[in-house]
Nucleic acid binder design. Structure first.
Lengths: 153, 153
DNA sequence: TCATTGCTTTACGTTTACGTCAACGTCAAG
DNA sequence: CTTGACGTTGACGTAAACGTAAAGCAATGA
């Protein structure tokens, strides 16, 4: 995780809460967000965020009835959205997230996780090959188009 | 049995389907396939193949009422399935296929096609980045797992 | 001749991933 | 106290991508 996390405006609240006596010093890791803020920032609807919660992909804190989102929820959302861009179904994305989150104390657990990692890797590498193929076909096609264009001009 | 209206092609197809090994007088580019053969070979159902036809992604020849698949249909099916592996919706896949097939005689057409190619390329390169990121995260995660495993052993 | 096999169309069912109300709670401002 | 901005939980709608009968020819095997 963290390889492609978007640098965001977590500084603003962190610095302004520096001298507040009422609130303990809030580091950026303490910041929380509402569902609307999260949805807007990630470019999805609140309905979508709630849908992901229904499927168990995220589980924000509840204060009373209201959802409170923390940094970990943002991390998960990033994973989810990238998974979606890659065309993975949400259920499969959930298994991936669970994989990252699963407690892996015992050796048997770790062996299992390593096996899952290999499966994931196979899948991703197949996709990468598909993309490379598609890109090179696209390049070849472009070359031919430009040839045709040159003959016309 | 009554008089056959168009006996020639129908019988050709029937006999070639019966024993394909003997029918090697035909060059491979002339070979045709039934919907079942195509479906089996590509690992999809005939319903799926017909669905793609409904959406205009393939348009096999018709002999009478029966669908006859040629090499170009197989090429298209390959494009479709790769598109699906990459998570593209079928409608978008159709536009890509149409792009490759579109007659591009005039310069304006070619300009348009080149623009489309760029869009496609952007999309694919975004996906590639996502895959690279996911793969490197996976690698990092694996490294940590192996560390944990070493500490246990 | 009859049954089987394969292809056909029509049409409704299903799953995924949400969208879209509806109806209600809550809290600060006017 | 009412209004309005957000929040909540259902519950139903929908589009994509097929699945799954149902029902019908047409050629072939027994």
């Amino acid at each position: 995780m963290g390889a492609m996390t978007t640098p965001t405006r977590e500084q603003e609240r962190a610095s302004s809460a520096r001298d507040g006596a009422e609130q303990r010093e809030r580091t950026s890791s303490d910041r929380t967000w509402t569902i609307r803020e999260i949805a807007d920032e990630f470019g999805v609807t609140h309905r979508t965020v709630r849908h992901y919660e229904d499927l168990g992909l995220i589980s924000p804190e509840r204060r009373g009835t209201t959802r409170v989102y923390h940094r970990r929820d943002r991390t998960r959302l990033n994973l989810i959205l990238r998974g979606k861009r890659l065309g993975f179904p949400l259920e499969e994305i959930r298994t991936i997230i669970d994989l990252y989150d699963r407690p892996r104390g015992k050796a048997s657990q770790l062996e299992y996780v390593l096996g899952q990692i290999d499966e994931r890797r196979e899948d991703l590498e197949q996709r990468r090959r598909d993309i490379e193929d598609a890109l090179s076909e696209l390049g070849e096609f472009e070359r031919r188009c430009r040839e045709d264009l040159d003959r016309l001009g």
